[in-house]
């Protein structure tokens, strides 16, 4: 018998969901609001919420001081490049683990995940020395490779989970119809796993976009993405919160807009196979 949901209960749940949502979103909202204040208004006490003289001055200053488009392009190149490279490697890897597992598959999966537990700074010097040796320091190529390696365990794990939901019989049927391995992955498996692959791509673009340790320590100018752009507005001696907020807003706006438009796909992919 289905449980009836009372109007009161529904109202409370909705209100609670909105309250939690607003609480999570508030720091971003405050950052955006601060970006339109003067530096004095940014630290005013009591804080001003909407009743202030809105100004675009901070955006003008940031635009004048920094080459935003260069940082933006680097962020796009690193996020998209590392994600696509990761997908190209991860799809066949996840296929083999999901459909032709060996005795060690689970161990390999756990080992891959364990690499995420390694403190990044532990391998900073070796990676840096390798990049210096090959003349790849502060290059997009090196950063794409590093970000791919960092996110590969998550990509493989996500795809493996999605692929496990797909009945193996369908792939067997394709094989019986004469499909080779390439055709099986490209024309049978991939179309069926599109929601999962799409959400994996979206999630990894977000992870790569926000990655701050490697992008701050291995880039200076040529490959520096928006994380470096934000960091350049943090001041040890001076209150530049409004300008820092403007820089932060400019850095998060593209990924926020992308996430907003693709949220349906993202949620669908993340909950894919969660309820059986």
């Amino acid at each position: 018998m289905a449980r009836s949901v009372t109007t009161r209960r529904k109202t409370i749940t909705t209100a609670l969901a909105w309250a939690i949502g607003l609480m999570i979103f508030f720091p971003i909202l405050w950052t955006v609001l601060t970006s339109f204040k003067t530096e004095a208004q940014a630290i005013s006490d009591p804080p001003v919420f909407l009743n202030f003289d809105w100004t675009l001055e901070n955006y003008a200053v940031v635009q004048e001081r920094s080459n935003y488009l260069r940082y933006l392009w680097n962020s796009v190149a690193l996020a998209v490049g590392s994600t696509l490279l990761g997908i190209v490697i991860a799809v066949p890897a996840a296929w083999s683990m999901a459909f032709v597992p060996s005795r060690r598959t689970k161990d390999i999966l756990m080992w891959m995940l364990s690499t995420k537990m390694l403190p990044a700074v532990g391998v900073l010097y070796p990676i840096r020395l390798v990049l210096i040796h090959f003349g790849l320091l502060d290059t997009k190529l090196a950063m794409i490779a590093i970000l791919t390696m960092i996110n590969l365990p998550i990509i493989i794990w996500m795809l493996y989970t999605y692929f496990r939901e797909i009945p193996g019989e369908i792939l067997e049927a394709a094989r019986m119809d004469g499909a080779g391995l390439r055709a099986e992955i490209l024309y049978v498996l991939t179309p069926m796993a599109i929601p999962g692959i799409a959400s994996t791509i979206l999630l990894n673009i977000i992870l790569a976009w926000n990655e701050a340790f490697w992008t701050l320590t291995l880039t200076t100018t040529s490959a520096a993405p928006l994380t470096a752009f934000i960091a350049s507005y943090s001041s040890p001696e001076g209150l530049f919160y409004a300008k820092l907020s403007a820089a932060s807003t400019m850095a998060i706006a593209p990924i926020l807009i992308m996430g907003w438009f693709s949220q349906k796909q993202l949620v669908r992919g993340l909950t894919f196979g969660a309820v059986k």
Binding site: L124, Y125, R128, L129, I132, L137, D138, L216, T217, T220, T221, A224, A228, A231, S232, Y233, S234, P236
Partner: peptide, 22 residues
């Protein structure tokens, strides 16, 4: 290249120690 103070120290130290020449 403008960096947060602690990141600047870390990056510069690492760069000098590894001879990165950045």
């Amino acid at each position: 290249v403008t960096l947060e103070e602690n990141v600047l120290r870390q990056n510069v130290t690492t760069d000098i120690a590894t001879g990165g020449g950045q």
